[in-house]
Structure formats: structure tokens, C-alpha cells
Amino acid sequence: MGKITFYEDRAFQGRSYECTTDCPNLQPYFSRCNSIRVESGCWMIYERPNYQGHQYFLRRGEYPDYQQWMGLSDSIRSCCLIPP
């Protein structure tokens, strides 16, 4: 099982949303994503809903700024857990 936490502000500040399963639409939970903490598993995150747009592969670790995962913007709208 994986676990990823999205934060609206840099350095793990602001409103957060924790996810443990695939989520095709993160828009209801936060308006922007400036930092991420991957506590377990590997995740693919996407800039648009329904697994569309630019995608980024994240391993376990801390990403205090969206540029840390080579993001082009602070828009993350869907995510899925990559099976081991």
C-alpha cells in the first residue's frame, strides 16, 4: 500500500490531502500543489484530471517545491500508485 500527501504551499505548509489509492480527480481537495511527501510506494502524478497532461514519477521522499519533481507548474490533478 502506498501513501502520498499533497500540500498547497511550499515546504509542506498549508492545506494538505493524504491519498492511499489512485485518484482520477484531486481538484475537490486542493487548488494548487507546491510540495509533496511520498511516505510509501511509487506514484505517477498528473497535471490534469483523469491521468492526463504532463506526468511525473515520484519515489519515496520529500519534495518541498514543485521544481524538485521537475514540475512545470503547481497544478496536480490526478495520481496513481505504481504497482511494485
Rank of each mutant, 00 (worst) to 15 (best):
Q68H: 02
L26P: 02
I76C: 15
E8R: 05
G14F: 01
Q13F: 04
N25S: 13
I76T: 00
G2H: 04
R48V: 14
G41D: 01
L81Q: 15
T5W: 13
F6Y: 07
S16R: 08
Y17V: 11
S40P: 02
C19M: 11
Q27K: 13
E39D: 04
Q13V: 07
R48W: 06
K3F: 15
S35A: 06
H54G: 01
P49Y: 03
Y7M: 03
N50Y: 05
D22G: 08
A11N: 12
F6K: 00
R15E: 13
Q52N: 14
F6M: 06
R15F: 04
I4A: 03
E18S: 07
M44V: 15
T21Q: 10
T21S: 10
Y7W: 11
R15N: 12
N50Q: 05
I4C: 04
S16W: 09
R10K: 12
Y17H: 10
R10L: 12
T20E: 12
S35L: 00
L81K: 07
R15P: 14
Q13I: 10
P24Y: 07
Q52R: 04
R10V: 13
D22H: 03
Q13A: 08
C79Y: 01
G14W: 02
G53W: 05
Y56F: 00
G2L: 08
K3D: 08
A11W: 12
Y17I: 10
A11H: 05
D22I: 03
Q27E: 10
T21K: 07
P49Q: 06
K3G: 09
L81V: 11
R15M: 08
T20W: 12
P49R: 11
S16L: 05
I36S: 03
G14C: 00
F6W: 02
P49H: 13
L26H: 03
I4K: 00
E8A: 11
L26I: 13
F12Q: 04
L26D: 00
Y7S: 02
E18D: 07
G71V: 01
G61C: 02
Q27L: 14
P24D: 12
D22W: 01
F30E: 03
F30S: 05
G2R: 11
N50F: 14
S16I: 11
Y7L: 01
N25G: 10
Q52A: 06
M1A: 04
C42Y: 03
D9A: 11
M1N: 15
R15Y: 10
I4T: 02
P24F: 01
G14N: 05
R10G: 14
C23E: 13
S75R: 08
N50A: 12
F12K: 01
R10Y: 15
C19W: 09
D22Q: 04
C23N: 04
G53E: 15
D22F: 01
E18T: 07
I36M: 15
C23P: 01
S16N: 12
E8W: 02
A11I: 08
T5L: 12
L26S: 08
F12N: 04
G2Y: 06
T21N: 07
G14M: 03
L81E: 09
G53L: 09
R15Q: 14
S73Y: 06
I45N: 02
L81N: 10
D74V: 01
C23D: 12
C23R: 08
N25Q: 06
Y17F: 07
L81M: 10
C19L: 12
Y17K: 06
T20A: 14
G53P: 13
M1F: 14
T21Y: 07
N25E: 11
L26R: 01
P24E: 05
P49N: 09
P49A: 07
G53F: 07
K3A: 12
C23I: 03
F12W: 04
Y17S: 09
S35G: 03
R10A: 14
C19K: 07
M1W: 03
E62G: 04
C42R: 01
R15D: 07
S35F: 01
Y51K: 15
N50M: 13
Y29H: 13
E8F: 03
G41S: 02
N25V: 08
N25Y: 15
F12I: 03
M44I: 05
M44S: 15
M44L: 15
Q13E: 12
N25F: 02
T5N: 02
Y17C: 06
Y17M: 14
C80Y: 11
T5M: 14
R15A: 10
T21L: 09
I76V: 06
D22V: 04
C19D: 02
R10C: 15
S35T: 02
S16Q: 07
N50R: 09
Y7H: 04
G2W: 04
N25P: 00
